[in-house]
Write a protein that binds this DNA or RNA. Structure first.
Lengths: 144, 144
DNA sequence: GTTATTGCAAACAATTTGCATATAA
DNA sequence: TTATATGCAAATTGTTTGCAATAAC
């Protein structure tokens, strides 16, 4: 997500939260604003650290509660890399999406998008005889 | 994996473990034997329960250590469904593999395989400019 | 005023680790 | 005999929850 998309995400999210009857409270707002600035994957701990650094409110409890809410509303995506920590990232409201490659050397996670892969996944529902509502692809790779 | 493939997995695993210089010890053997009987996803807790039920050795610590070893040797696959528990399953030594669909209604996880999807993933390495060493695909779906 | 939201601290659950003992090679 | 593997129990880690105080509407 580029700066524009992030801005759109922020507006969209605020609207959805308001629409859900939730209040514009300090803690959750700080979390949402923070996510609106980060398009890459962040852990709850990352968010906690950043908020503390900039003097924003947001206890651990609040951060987890906010992330849970955002996830339920489809505003963030939870990504379980398998190292025991959950990572989150904003969901582009335009529907664009990407997947992740875990680099075996560094452990870094980098996003990627691939049209052919999406095409293959699109056809899956019909081939399997079910309505596919979501998908995740995780690659493990090392630099060629 | 059918009964035949499971039997092959068991033999293969024992060979790989021996080849790695590891001993044929009671705890790890019980875990391997158990996995050789289960082709579907199991949690460490599942394994602990079954072993205890049948009077086999295998403490929590041993089970986790065995699973870690098997995972490092590529004999089992770790699957993080995102609910805080890791699930494991034997890796078919023939190279065949499948992915998983999480059914939204029941929460059940069922395996599936799809050639076109595999083809798309195969091409990914070149398109991304890296050597892809592994991949996982998780679908969320509901019955059509 | 009411009700959602917060922060703290305690509670939890899954997994990991230290260490003395047991055991395969 | 000697290094690996085990079991127990304690420690860690990420996440959740109870509850009284606080702030949004």
């Amino acid at each position: 997500m580029d700066a524009d998309a992030r801005e759109r995400w922020l507006e969209h999210s605020k609207a959805v939260l308001r629409g859900a009857g939730l209040r514009t409270s300090a803690g959750r707002t700080a979390v949402v604003d923070m996510l609106g600035r980060q398009s890459c994957l962040v852990t709850a701990q990352d968010i906690a650290d950043r908020l503390r650094d900039e003097g924003s409110p947001g206890s651990t409890a609040t951060i987890y509660r906010a992330l849970e809410t955002l996830h339920e509303l489809g505003l963030v995506r939870r990504f379980d890399s398998g190292e025991g920590v959950a990572r989150y990232e904003p969901v582009d409201p335009s529907g664009d999406h990407h997947h992740h490659v875990v680099l075996e050397d560094s452990g870094d996670v980098v996003p990627f998008a691939d049209a052919e892969l999406e095409r293959a996944i699109e056809g899956l529902g019909e081939r399997l005889g079910m309505r596919v509502t979501g998908h995740d692809v995780i690659l493990r790779a090392r630099r060629a």
